[in-house]
């Protein structure tokens, strides 16, 4: 009977490339992170069960309406008529633009109605009302 000779091997994990992997991940996150263009308003969104996820976000142009009825487009405080002029330029740049209306749920419908009318004027006909998922 032959006994096997014990081979003394030291196991070690190669850590030289660890930093490369880490930097790769870091670069990935840095590149893929998109920063929001505007600050907008803090709004309390209404809730809806039929809420859909929006996958393509490149075409979105946000319109904020806070509970006081102030309207903000590209961080400019505008009147409802101003929405129309701003969106006219946006439509020229990108005909497939989608207006993303983030309005406070307590605001009067009047403001939203005026914005919709302004968007129709600007021929920005695709609209999304920002909502939260309703539970239950």
């Amino acid at each position: 009977m032959r006994l096997r000779q014990k081979v003394s091997t030291r196991t070690n994990i190669p850590t030289a490339s660890m930093s490369d992997i880490a930097f790769l991940l870091l670069l990935f996150f840095l590149v893929s992170t998109k920063f929001r263009k505007e600050i907008g308003f803090k709004v309390l969104l209404p809730e809806a069960r039929a809420t859909e996820r929006i996958i393509k976000t490149e075409n979105l142009a946000r319109v904020y309406v806070n509970s006081k009825g102030q309207i903000s487009v590209d961080d400019f405080l505008v009147l409802p008529e101003g929405v129309s002029t701003r969106f006219k330029l946006k439509v020229l740049e990108n005909p497939g633009i989608i207006a993303y209306i983030k309005a406070d749920k307590h605001v009067k419908y009047d403001y939203v109605d005026q914005i919709l009318e302004a968007l129709r004027d600007a021929k920005a006909l695709r609209v999304i009302f920002a909502t939260e998922f309703k539970k239950g």
């Binding site: 976000t57 993303y100 004027d121 695709r126």
Partner: peptide
């Protein structure tokens, strides 16, 4: 981004 979609009628 999530919400309710709507297409407005043309003027």
């Amino acid at each position: 981004d999530k919400g309710l979609k709507l297409v407005l009628p043309e003027k």
